[in-house]
Nucleic acid binder design. Sequence first.
DNA 1: TAATAAATCTATAACCTTTACAATGTTGTT
DNA 2: AACAACATTGTAAAGGTTATAGATTTATTA
Lengths: 139, 139
Amino acid sequence: MNPSFEELKKELNLRNVNLSYQRLKVLKYLTQNQCHPTVDQIFTDLHKDISTLSKTTVYNTLRVLEEVDLVRVITIEEHETRYDINVENHGHFKCETCGTIYDFSVDIDFLTPRDLDKFKINDKNVYFKGICPRCLSIE
Amino acid sequence: MNPSFEELKKELNLRNVNLSYQRLKVLKYLTQNQCHPTVDQIFTDLHKDISTLSKTTVYNTLRVLEEVDLVRVITIEEHETRYDINVENHGHFKCETCGTIYDFSVDIDFLTPRDLDKFKINDKNVYFKGICPRCLSIE
DNA sequence: TAATAAATCTATAACCTTTACAATGTTGTT
DNA sequence: AACAACATTGTAAAGGTTATAGATTTATTA
């Protein structure tokens, strides 16, 4: 499972990242909204609570969290960078009709391309596109 | 193997896409430069031959070619949409040091996530990040 | 071939996301 | 309390992509 909020706070301390009020809110948002939100979604939602919040802060915070490997960047589609707190390897499915992004479990370690024998692999990503069951049933 | 240039021209006719001079040049470029170029790379190189070429035309052409499934969009990294004429399923490896994108063969059909039983899958993508052998040896 | 319609190309401006930067505010340490 | 270090904010700038309108080319018909 995903790490709990408390565990994440500990992680930040371990990695010498100060936990400001804004960073705490972003982190909390990511743990509670594991729907791969965009910066704009995060900013818009948090702005309701923190009227002084700047979008730059959201960018900065996400960059910091990414640097310490607590957050993962997902680039399924151009022009919409999404953020995911789950660092575990899993695949993403984007519905081309409604835009929802679904997680799915995939045995990425099973992928052992012989072509990459001499390559150092840091990150593996799998994403599919298509139509989700809900949109299929509506059609 | 990849389709030949002549075959691609036939494909365009089949799909009722007019083959203008500019489109022909872009298509030719993609078949001869299968290095997943960006729009800017395509435009800059072609501009040497066609001084009147507009970057908008490159965008438009790529969109048309994508719509008829002759070209595939690769989004490995944010802010750099890349184009690939090879529609066959294969994986991409991006070297985080030199930026080169390598192809590798991967048995994508082997990926049969049970989670996606009821999903209609149109497109499968696999991309890895890490360091390529050349950069490893230089270090 | 000429006339007309349709499609394509070009250039510019607009848009949107992300980054850079400088000023302000906050936190931590002594 | 004073200082330094860091974080936040707001604005401006950068970069890539798209919208649009006019010019050019191509296709069609007579």
